[in-house]
Design a protein around this nucleic acid. Structure first.
Lengths: 192, 192
DNA sequence: CAATCTAATAGACAATGTGTTGTATAATAA
DNA sequence: TTATTATACAACACATTGTCTATTAGATTG
């Protein structure tokens, strides 16, 4: 198959990158509601109208930015063995990806500002967990509804990552992954 | 002590209620960004200027609405025994309060729209959990950082409630409380 | 009840932001 | 070459914001 559709005008890439950088910069300075197309265009040193050639409005732009990043996480999760599980390698890769794009994730996921992105990520994790829970079910003595366990687990993972970002990544991905792994696999602890 | 400061002009109460109801209505129909002071005033059948007599802007209004509801949850948590714990009674009371105000919580907490409120609630729960975790620590064989356990647990609780709201409260508070209780108290399960 | 607060309303204003239109230029693709 | 696309700029109509002044309506107190 041809790579034709992937070859994008370098000016487009440049403009989108300028818009994206400007937006992330502004998010670190202003509330989302204060961010206007005017300001983005000014910061990105592009014409305001140019913005509208790429995005319908700011919400549309955010959705597209979210798309890109969600796809990257999705690619990581797809590497999981079958049946999928949050083994520690997957967790580490995911956390390392977030660490590598921390500026982006800090504002879009953790800065109390962009629910759209959080939702997408949550759904991705929840779907992934769904199959995991299925597998666990047999060996589990807990009397917990499957859906509630998924709600609980996926919220816990995303939430932990959010706190991690807000606290400026105080732990290495490898360490946090190990901790998450312990919390996730409801452990068969000694009878105490 | 006198009740003087609590006696509020009934016209003020009426107006605030009208604004609040109009806002929650609009949130069910429109994205937050599309909600303007104009529309709120129109829906609330008040003069636009009257809005500014009560709130600086829409963000300010949201913050004040959040304040009120957070205080109610706070009151419930304060009833907890000392040391505070997420015993099942507290969980039930909290879920029943949310069920009773589900229209409000659905849009402000669960509709992917108002991060401010979610943040406040998260902090409240996290603080509450903090003392709980301290208590658990002794009996716990897990090798997990205290702060990470708090991140994990409080995110899990809020997140579960959010899913519960989004799915139109498919479980009774008593049942969900029991499930949450099982998930929270990392169980000493049989050796399997 | 009457006097007096105070909330709410009405109308207007400047400043800012939005989204569209028309025209033009340069780069890319067929 | 020709068609398409990205970008730029100016101008426009319109909506929204936040503030102002003057007036009306409602609530409280003596």
């Amino acid at each position: 198959m041809s790579t034709k559709s992937q070859r994008i005008d370098p000016r487009v890439l440049r403009t989108r990158q300028l818009i994206r950088d400007a937006f992330i910069e502004l998010l670190q300075e202003l509330e989302l509601e204060k961010i206007t197309v005017n300001r983005i265009a000014e910061r990105a040193t592009i014409n305001r109208v140019t913005f509208y050639l790429h995005y319908r409005d700011i919400s549309d732009m955010i959705e597209q930015l979210a798309d890109d990043m969600i796809n990257e996480i999705h690619a990581i999760l797809k590497e999981a063995p079958d049946p999928p599980d949050f083994n520690i390698e997957i967790l580490i890769k995911m956390l390392e990806h977030i660490e590598g794009n921390s500026k982006f994730y800090k504002v879009l996921l953790a800065s109390k500002r962009i629910p759209v992105f959080t939702e997408r990520l949550m759904k991705l994790i929840a779907d992934f967990m769904s199959s995991r829970i299925n597998k666990l079910e047999e060996s589990l003595t807990l009397n917990v509804q499957k859906d509630i366990a998924i709600w609980y687990g996926s919220s816990a993972i995303i939430g932990t990552i959010v706190f991690w970002l807000r606290n400026d990544l105080p732990y290495k991905p490898v360490f946090l992954a190990a901790q998450l792994s312990e919390l996730l696999h409801i452990p068969e602890s000694p009878s105490r």
